[in-house]
Design a protein around this nucleic acid. Structure first.
Lengths: 196, 196, 196, 196
DNA sequence: TATGAATGAGGATTCATTCAT
DNA sequence: CATGAATGAATCCTCATTCAT
């Protein structure tokens, strides 16, 4: 399955972080999980920190690709927004360990100052989309941070509930309700509901 | 300020976790911050873990008291809900270190299995409130988890943005917009907007 | 004998370096030699390197004091020079482990760039003394480095032979011959031999 | 330049030890410097230690050849002695990396007990020469070790100063002064200075 | 109660050496 | 012969906890 040792190490890290938590990750466990000697990890990575950071970057990269899949800016804003939401949920529902890792990484001691805000690569284009929507009066005239949170936080909250086995987010009807609710909470109210 | 040593230790813990992060908390720093010897902490607490857990419980207790302050179940649901939201925001905007601590605690190695979900004491009554509202058709007929997240997650998201200095959540107008939006996203649509 | 743990650690380091060599010094051995736990050394020193450096500085400080004991610049140069030589030899013959440590330290990886030349604190005033002697034509008109080496290197060489048990440098007659020879090799030849 | 891999490895070792120090020599660096794989070194040598020891022996062998070049025991002692000194200096001034290696080797963890005294191959014949000179009253009636050091140590000291860029020992006048001084410090004083 | 020196298990990292290709 | 990925013992250092004073 693994084409090379470097990927094997990253995959073992992901498994271990999901099973025992980032805090409990240590090189001995990692080596055992990967079926390697401790020293082997240091052939491919400079340090434990590097492993975690590379894994994070890999996950963020893949997440971004997934979220912006089939992105077409000329489509109606609602369609675009909901497509992105769906992409996000679909991706993390299929890869719950990615979601969990990102969450844990956000509170790991590695960052602290650099990227206090996770999801950066996703949040940034979203912010631009929202500002464009506000200019066209398609969205409520509220501060961008607020709109961003109204559209985004419930989805993150539902994903957390999903990885904690509190809800079945594979349910497409539930997803649709979620997306629709998120969209409605940011969409301008005088828009013709028939057109959306 | 402190009448007893136990509180002094808990307060010093809170300060340090906010300044340097839960990960970097150690007993030497804690003793120094409190102006005590390391051994003294062990007179009042069994372990470092106990300190953190007791602090967490203290914070949750205070948060709950604050959120349910002036709680009157006989008032209209919207009033009650928004009052709780306001209480929550007011409390954590005044005590950002409490919010930050709870966030960090959620990913600390202490839990992992026990209390995966933070905010427990607050979430539980909220869930009951929501279910009551659904029964009375005051709220949308959606799964409770979804309603909970729609009402709750944007507020948490905004509080995170606040402690990261990305938004001024002391602004009352902004708070009102936030609460109104959260309420609207869960409120039944056929309710007379004049009555709320 | 040891008034405090810090000195105990430094003394144990010295013993171990002399017995097994600086290269083979490790924290486990050091702790065992001192009768302490490994962690204890880190209460008093930041790192293994710090221990070695502090010991070096302590030794150099003591050596300098010993070499310049009873130093009186108004005495004839020969007397001064030979007194210093005697102080040096007396000190290191009584403290052969100090000599050995300094020798090893000079090739340890800790330096490399900083103080390639050991004995700095001793060499510097010596250089000045030599230059003064040259100005007064008491010494041969040769480059200072050469005079320095002629006066100094045989003594170092004899000390090395002594710590390798190749010669008994406690023998005062031998010391006198050494000092006289070193002095003669740098002293101006037209000086009245009766006056020295 | 290299006809065989074994020499290539020894030469690369020498370069690295001079550039970074014996302490920092490791097989990975050595392989890279030689343009070989790590494993290749183990085809030609049993261990890292073997490489260092073989290099040392090679250097000592070459040094001896150089020092005893044109050695003719029937010539006057002074001529012989100064010729050897000159050979020594000429050789190490042309091959400062050899000198540096020998110095570092003397404090490496490889020896410790075996060959505490470096320069063995050179020192031994020198000792015999000195004893012969003493018997013929050409040299001072002093212990051999002392004579050896008087004649030898300043030269070593000057070579050290040379590799530390503190003196230009390629200067032939300086060399002559050095040799003359070393000779004078061991030569019997009643020898007719005109004959040497 | 209060102290803080001492403990030592545990964790990250290095590197000489091996061996399958 | 040549390769270089893999190994794992050895090393430095940290830190929660204890205990004699």
């Amino acid at each position: 399955m693994n084409t090379n040792t470097k990927d094997l190490i990253l995959e073992s890290t992901l498994k271990l972080v999901n099973r025992e938590g980032l805090y409990h990750l240590n090189m001995k466990k990692l080596a055992k999980e990967a079926g390697l000697a401790i020293g082997t990890a240091y052939i491919y990575f400079d340090s434990k920190e590097t492993i975690i950071n590379e894994l994070y970057q890999k996950i963020v990269r893949e997440s971004e690709v997934a979220v912006f899949k089939n992105f077409q800016s000329e489509r109606p804003l609602k369609e675009t927004a909901i497509a992105m939401m769906r992409n996000l949920v679909t991706f993390f529902v299929s890869n719950p360990d990615y979601f969990n890792f990102i969450e844990q990484y956000g509170f790991s001691p590695i960052l602290l100052k650099e990227s206090k805000e996770k999801w950066l690569g996703i949040i940034d284009p979203l912010t631009k989309l929202i500002e464009k929507g506000k200019n066209k009066s398609l969205l409520k005239n509220l501060p961008t941070v607020l709109l961003l949170n109204l559209a985004h936080s419930p989805i993150i909250g539902m994903l957390k509930a999903f990885i904690n086995n509190q809800v079945d987010l594979t349910d497409e009807w539930l997803q649709d309700q979620l997306f629709e609710a998120c969209w409605k909470s940011i969409a301008s109210e005088n828009i013709d509901p028939k057109k959306g």
